[in-house]
């Protein structure tokens, strides 16, 4: 069980670094959505299903849609 947690945390760290490095903003939002989904699995493994439900609904659902709406108003690529 501990190894699964370590694997998930390594994935989360790689995801977070990639979000900072990537130039394509839509790719960054998709990476952030994947980060939130894996984070909700981690919350479930840490015995807090309440936070997991909220993370899956807010982090992976609403936040991505709001970010996409903002990107559609501005430019897709970072300079």
């Amino acid at each position: 069980m501990v190894y699964i947690n370590v694997f998930i945390i390594i994935f989360l760290i790689i995801c977070a670094l990639a979000i900072g490095k990537i130039k394509d903003l839509i790719g960054a939002v998709v990476l952030f959505s994947a980060y939130s989904l894996v984070m909700s699995i981690l919350w479930l493994l840490l015995n807090s299903p309440d936070v997991a439900i909220t993370e899956a609904a807010i982090g992976a659902g609403v936040t991505s849609i709001l970010f996409f709406a903002v990107i559609s108003k501005t430019k897709r690529y970072e300079k």
């Binding site: 439900i53 909220t54 609904a57 659902g61 609403v62």
Partner: peptide, 8 residues
Amino acid sequence: AGGAIIGT
């Protein structure tokens, strides 16, 4: 959480 799901 439930309100966020219905809003989505």
